[in-house]
Simulated scan of single mutants.
Amino acid sequence: MHKATGVFDILTTSTDNPKILDFCVAPGGYLETSMWHDPRAQATAFSLGTDQGGHEILMPPNPRIAVKFMDITMLAADMGVDTIPAGHPDFANFPPRELAPNRFFDLVICDGQVLRTNVHARAEYRESREATRLTLTQLALGLDHLTPGGTMVVLLHHMETWGTLCLMRKMHQFASVQLFKHPKCHAKRSAFYMIATKVNARCPQATDAIEEWKGIWKVATFGSEEAYRDVMHASDAEVHSLLKDFGPRLVENARPIWVIQAKALEKASFVKGASRGWGPS
């Protein structure tokens, strides 16, 4: 990834000891690589504990890395919620604020995914909303605590979905955006990385994005099914507006990602020999 995008340049060009925030560190490959690029770096990392179904951290201990084991989707205080509604299924599970308002980081890594291994640890209301809650937590807090001019690495899925399209259009408003997909690792899957550099994290567009993401997270965490459907729904007019304004740039940015996935799918065992028409092969 670094060879293709220069994602870790933000660390080596910093005059002070660069700071890294990794929201879902386990097993630790990206953070370990980041620290290798600049041994001066200091990192704050979060990970779901193995007792909650999280992955084991495989990188060796490092005194410059502070790891906190917790479910980041429950950081209500950090997301702007000070009072938890009585009777909420997770009433007792929201921790105090973790990241002080004046803590900022040069590199923020947002590559968490919902794990099937911790289904038993989640309240029922979260099942259909967990991916949204996890993504929004990382985006909102990551941008909120990013040093102006810093870099964000964000794992995304399904380029064509509404949420992904909206996110990429927003990021283009206040950052230089590159997309990356490894030609071999997980090439058949929809996953890819968005690398946002030179992020103007204090401009009005960034501030609006943070507030919007926090607002949707609040609905996904405390709202009714109807409220959640409404906040996630896009009107025809909104879709047409996005495609008109951002469609050409989307295709330009996305084409290399789609090409990698298409080539990998052509060679996939479950595709070889399959009919390419409507009738029998």
Rank of each mutant, 00 (worst) to 15 (best):
M171K: 00
A191H: 01
A131S: 04
T132K: 11
M171C: 07
H145S: 10
V199F: 05
P148T: 03
R122G: 07
E127S: 08
K188V: 05
R169Q: 10
E130T: 01
G163E: 14
L155D: 08
A140Y: 08
M152P: 02
Y125H: 14
Q138K: 01
Q205L: 15
K184I: 11
L146V: 05
K198R: 09
L139N: 02
A206K: 03
Q178A: 11
R202N: 14
G149M: 04
E160L: 02
R202H: 13
R126P: 00
D208T: 15
E130K: 05
F174C: 10
T207I: 15
M171D: 06
R189K: 08
K198V: 09
R133P: 04
C166Q: 14
L165G: 00
T147A: 00
F174W: 03
T207N: 15
T151L: 09
R169I: 10
F180L: 08
H145W: 05
H145P: 12
R169D: 09
M159T: 07
H182A: 04
T132N: 14
K198F: 10
W162E: 06
A175G: 06
A123P: 04
M171H: 01
L136T: 10
G163C: 13
A187M: 04
P204I: 15
R122F: 11
A131K: 09
N200Y: 12
P183W: 02
G149N: 02
T207K: 15
N200R: 14
P183T: 06
G142C: 03
M152E: 01
L146M: 02
D144G: 11
Q173M: 06
R189C: 03
A123E: 03
Q138W: 01
